[in-house]
Design a protein around this nucleic acid. Structure first.
Lengths: 208, 208
DNA sequence: TAGATTGTTAATCGATTAACAATC
DNA sequence: TAGATTGTTAATCGATTAACAATC
């Protein structure tokens, strides 16, 4: 999509801009300048302008940015204008919590299935879904055109499962297992390591 | 604890070192050099040595690092050698998932209670706990010496609740609500914005 | 036009990597 | 002692901030 290299630091910030713009929209605010936004977000106006200009000139001198337009454009950049089909592997508490989270659909992420290796769970309902056995994965991923798998299973099973998922054609893995996936193949991994987040809080509490 | 300023980038990496060292311990490995560890973790040996030397000289020339010793020391730096009492505010699916997560206790985080503003949920069991009403918070936080609150409630309620928690003496907030908390007071906030994480994955999928 | 604010270049700051002397 | 590897300084790289000309 973009021509030149975008730094990871910029990408990390994009969803936050998107969130603030959505709040401005809700408040009915039509335009905003980089300096107003910078005050709200606690960043520099310079950073906002630099970040946005990686993707094009969305603003207008003397005016600022049109909130609706900028919101839509950042949405496109993030790929939120398209539908991604998603499955959850691991029907434990966290997997079920994700399945129940309704907001994902609004952003174009459609949760199509939830799977577990425990046969006794299979057939149970979770949100609008029914838990399926992992031996259905290959067929399901292909038939339902699944591109993202959320991995909410014990770390011991994560690596093997991830390898299988890649073979079955999964493009992106949202990894909640407490391990780094060492995957050779061309698959994107986004890690959510909750325990690391809690440890960072603990560090700051301890070393105040 | 430390005398000099530690950069956020270093702090972000500490829990990951801790995790790898714990795996090495499980494998019964006694010593490791920065270059061996760098290969396992996909970082440079130089970075590892720089990072660790922020906190002291944990290694030995010609030998490397003693795994058990380094693990223990990083644990202390992260504050994992002490007990932090934690409560969960919001007994939805995510709050319940956190309450059921057993591993936190191993790392010194003791989940002492779960609260909700919905009276019809109060009295229900979740893991080893019983859901309490939020009007019990002030008493509970003081009596049970709670220092951390995990916020797993709708973003509309997050800010007000956070302010109350700070008044009641909470030191750190582990924020899962989809909003940034604007708190004046001296409280530490660690954000877990799951939807932002998913958007970053979506960005990378879209702009491959 | 005058005022405002962007887009963009240049300057600064911080983080990472390289190199090597110190030392176990 | 010789070999290995740290701790640390210096060099490089990347990210952030400042400044300002362009322009709406």
């Amino acid at each position: 999509m973009q021509k030149h290299f975008i730094s990871p630091a910029v990408i990390r910030r994009l969803p936050r801009y998107y969130r603030y713009l959505s709040e401005l929209l809700e408040e009915g605010i039509e335009r905003i300048s980089s300096s107003e936004l910078s005050r709200k977000m606690n960043v520099t106006a310079s950073q906002i302008r630099q970040d946005l200009n990686n993707f094009g000139g969305f603003g207008q001198q003397g005016y600022g940015y049109n909130v609706q337009y900028l919101y839509t454009e950042i949405g496109k950049i993030l790929g939120l204008d398209q539908q991604y089909h998603l499955i959850i592997i691991g029907a434990g508490n966290l997997g079920r919590a994700l399945a129940n989270y309704k907001k994902f659909e609004d952003r174009g992420f459609k949760i199509k299935g939830i799977f577990d290796s425990d046969l006794s769970l299979c057939g149970q309902p979770v949100a609008h879904l029914t838990i399926q056995h992992v031996n259905q994965l290959e067929r399901f991923i292909k038939e339902e055109n699944i591109s993202i798998a959320a991995l909410t299973l014990p770390k011991e099973q994560a690596e093997d499962m991830a390898k299988q998922l890649v073979d079955y054609g999964i493009q992106g893995i949202w990894n909640f297992a407490h391990t780094d996936l060492q995957l050779v193949k061309n698959v994107l991994v986004e890690n959510v390591h909750l325990s690391e987040s809690l440890m960072r809080l603990s560090y700051r509490l301890t070393n105040r």
